[in-house]
Design a protein around this nucleic acid. Structure first.
Lengths: 133, 133
DNA sequence: AATATTTTACGAACTTATTCGTAATAATCT
DNA sequence: AGATTATTACGAATAAGTTCGTAAAATATT
């Protein structure tokens, strides 16, 4: 249906997307500063990735800023879209396609808070109401 | 606590582990036959991977079979262990460490069956009983 | 305008993962 | 034993991802 291709951002690409999802359209410098807080990264390294992502269509960029300044990059894929795609791949690779297996494992590995549990339960209730399968 | 290191099997390594978890200890030939059902794979390719995994300690092997036959390889990491580790990494990478975010996304993306929902709910009930946090 | 700074473009080095060819070794068959 | 087949070991080619140096171009400063 959607024109979504093989969305499979690499580790580094995902990190950059996350910054852009959070901050909105940003320059290389801005992205690099955020990334460097977690892990020191050379400016040209970040630049290179963003250029590659631009070529792939993961990002777009506006050349003509206010007064001919640096490129401003913008994510061209939605967070939910990427989450969905990565989850699909992960569930297929690791849990043989079983979503419930994934969820049981996820719940089992750490102790979710009471609040988290309630949140999930509520979500499940809603699902059942709207989906009589 | 446990001596678990950085468990991060690659795509191909995971596929091999899955065969070994399912079949139990097996020869290269046997593993390769299973893998080839899904995706044709050269014998020496599978062999190479299993040798690498042996070097890494992911697999062990018995040299002295019944009558000096081929190596029989065995997974040296448990399925639950690897699931756990991969989930940790995935949740950190993609969902910023939030398990409930992962779960909500996973539930939202496809329609789980009524049965699956019940299964999960039951699991949540148990969790709440045993964990008054 | 000359110099310095910022940003971009290009390309190369390096790493990890994947794939397989080829040769050596071991076992089996005639 | 000699030939055939099976299995292992080794090394190399390719690909994808990561990292950065260097140079060119654009912008700002003195």
């Amino acid at each position: 249906m959607s024109k979504r291709k093989n969305i499979k951002p690499s580790e580094s690409e995902l990190a950059i997307l996350q910054v852009l999802w959070q901050r909105g359209p940003s320059t290389v410098k801005e992205v690099n500063e955020v990334l460097s807080e977690v892990k020191p990264t050379g400016y040209t390294t970040t630049l290179k990735f963003m250029q590659i992502m631009f070529d792939k269509g993961l990002l777009s960029r506006t050349s003509e800023g206010a007064k001919g300044r640096s490129h401003i990059y913008k994510a061209e894929v939605q967070e939910s879209q990427v989450h969905h795609a990565l989850l699909d791949q992960f569930i297929n690779r690791v849990f043989n396609g079983s979503t419930s297996q994934l969820i049981l494992r996820a719940l089992g590995r750490k102790h979710p808070t009471h609040q988290e549990i309630e949140e999930i339960k509520k979500f499940l209730d809603d699902l059942e109401k709207n989906n009589p399968s």
